[in-house]
Design a protein around this nucleic acid. Sequence first.
DNA 1: ACCTGAACACCGTTCAAGT
DNA 2: ACCTGAACACCGTTCAAGT
Lengths: 216, 216
Amino acid sequence: MSQNATHAVNTGRRAGLDRADMVAVALHLVESEGPAALTMRRLAAELNVTTNTVYWHVGSRDELIAELIRTRSTQMAEREISGSTARQRVTSAAHNVWDSAFANRAVTSLAHQTGTTALLEHPLEVALAHEIEAAGLTGEDAALALRSILSTVGGFLVGALRDESAIPTHLRAPALWSMTKAGLDPATIAALSEPTDHASVFVTTLEAVVAAHIPA
Amino acid sequence: MSQNATHAVNTGRRAGLDRADMVAVALHLVESEGPAALTMRRLAAELNVTTNTVYWHVGSRDELIAELIRTRSTQMAEREISGSTARQRVTSAAHNVWDSAFANRAVTSLAHQTGTTALLEHPLEVALAHEIEAAGLTGEDAALALRSILSTVGGFLVGALRDESAIPTHLRAPALWSMTKAGLDPATIAALSEPTDHASVFVTTLEAVVAAHIPA
DNA sequence: ACCTGAACACCGTTCAAGT
DNA sequence: ACCTGAACACCGTTCAAGT
């Protein structure tokens, strides 16, 4: 956006933009207008260049997204882990994955869509792996615990980050349950007809999964 | 596909197709060539009609997909639940969700992409809810148990159904871990550098989650 | 009621050409 | 080395028109 003195001023046809500028603007686009706003044409327009200029610098849409995810990944890396017991610290590290996904909703959704979730969360997964080892697990045991916890986090993130407003009311879970006449207790139907508080169900579930893997 | 005697033969411009025919061909398209193959133009070509004919019958792509998911949903409904204890039967019902998702990979992926997962799995979720009630839970407790278990299943499905072949090798989890130099035990790195056996991690995790909710 | 032809407003990507 | 103009092969969707 800012065209300062350190940049070569627009001489002739040179735009004075590099790969990093494109990634930065792409990131801004995703965060301000959602993953769907990131098209090559839209990005080019935002940069005041032709689509092909974007291609020349970043190669393809997939490469652009990978670079964008890598950038955000390193920015997300630093989070503190609290707690004194092993279980508390593992739980805290797992919560960091959850929290940073929420703090970066749009980018996380983009990563889910493009299969780059592992890339985005890797630094936080490494931190979680460290706590799992500190709890006394290594090798296959540590891998099992890590994968079990990460899939649990991922499952709740899918539900919690989904844009429900994009789905017609009658196709959402509460509507489906309120129409269900299958001999279930009315109190159960009533509870399931309310929107889910993903965060609180997550906390309960994470506790059970951590306890199953990390010795007390 | 088969144009039999019960159908009105192609008189003039009438194609003799109805909404159900379109959904059936769309389903076949998704299962044989994947969710991405389901475009309105491709479907029209498959039916030997114009795109607009498809629109006239189904309304829009979203409506077509909702109808397709509903169709498969009722077909997926019938699965047996085994086990004698409450925990075994709840686990069995949860496994049915997992198994039928695998038996319908392409449709399940399409549902994930379009936010219609709840619609697709609803009959199997009802069956799971029944087992949870049979275990003695109702109301909020039953809802919590159901959501906790379903999110767990969902988390593993996202990982297990993802088409890894569409992701460059160097962006997949094993490659990321094999490049990680972060003071972790070499045995842990080695274990994480291998592809995940989602099914076995799932079984372990499900056991922990079920045990946390369903009394023994 | 059911279907077509033509168009609108988009996509990602590539090619030949300019400076 | 860096950038443009034009094009290819797609999308979902809509409109006016035909029978």
